[in-house]
Amino acid sequence: MHELMVVLSDAGGGEGELSWQERSLCAQTDPEAFFPEKGGSTREAKKVCVGCEVRAECLEYALANDERFGIWGGLSERERRKLKKRAV
């Protein structure tokens, strides 16, 4: 099971308010696009992320939890690693 699916299945929304994971566009999309094979295209996943209302929360989660695989907040693992290096 992909990490994103695990996160989404563990997501507990507050009373009457959906968690950011439940509001994410990727939750309504094929998860395979967000975990491409090595060297595979990230284009489709990133297109979904551009229009997502919780993109910032997703990226924040990935950075805080050192997610090493998949597209999170519209960035690949390599892009997130570069972002973290610049922040240090």
Rank of each mutant, 00 (worst) to 15 (best):
His2Leu: 09
His2Arg: 12
His2Gly: 09
Glu3Met: 06
Leu4Cys: 07
Leu4Trp: 13
Leu4Ile: 05
Met5Asn: 04
Val6Thr: 11
Leu8Thr: 02
Leu8Gln: 10
Leu8Arg: 07
Asp10Tyr: 11
Asp10Ala: 11
Gly12Lys: 10
Gly12Pro: 03
Gly14Thr: 03
Gly14His: 08
Glu15Gly: 06
Leu18Asp: 03
Trp20Leu: 06
Trp20Phe: 12
Trp20Pro: 09
Gln21Ala: 10
Gln21Tyr: 05
Glu22Gln: 04
Arg23Lys: 12
Ser24Cys: 05
Ser24Glu: 08
Leu25Phe: 08
Cys26Gly: 05
Gln28Lys: 09
Thr29Gln: 09
Thr29Asp: 06
Asp30Met: 04
Pro31Trp: 11
Glu32Met: 14
Phe34Asn: 01
Pro36Ala: 15
Glu37Lys: 04
Gly39Pro: 00
Ser41Leu: 05
Glu44Asn: 13
Glu44Pro: 01
Ala45Trp: 15
Ala45Thr: 12
Val48Ile: 01
Cys49Tyr: 02
Cys52Asn: 06
Val54His: 10
Val54Leu: 10
Arg55Thr: 01
Arg55Leu: 05
Ala56Ser: 14
Glu57Asn: 06
Glu60Leu: 11
Ala62Glu: 04
Leu63Phe: 01
Ala64Asn: 01
Asp66Tyr: 00
Glu67Tyr: 04
Glu67Phe: 05
Phe69Ile: 12
Ile71Gln: 15
Ile71Asp: 15
Gly73Glu: 01
Arg78Lys: 06
Lys82Ser: 14
Lys82Gly: 09
Leu83Ser: 08
Arg86Cys: 01
Val88Ala: 03
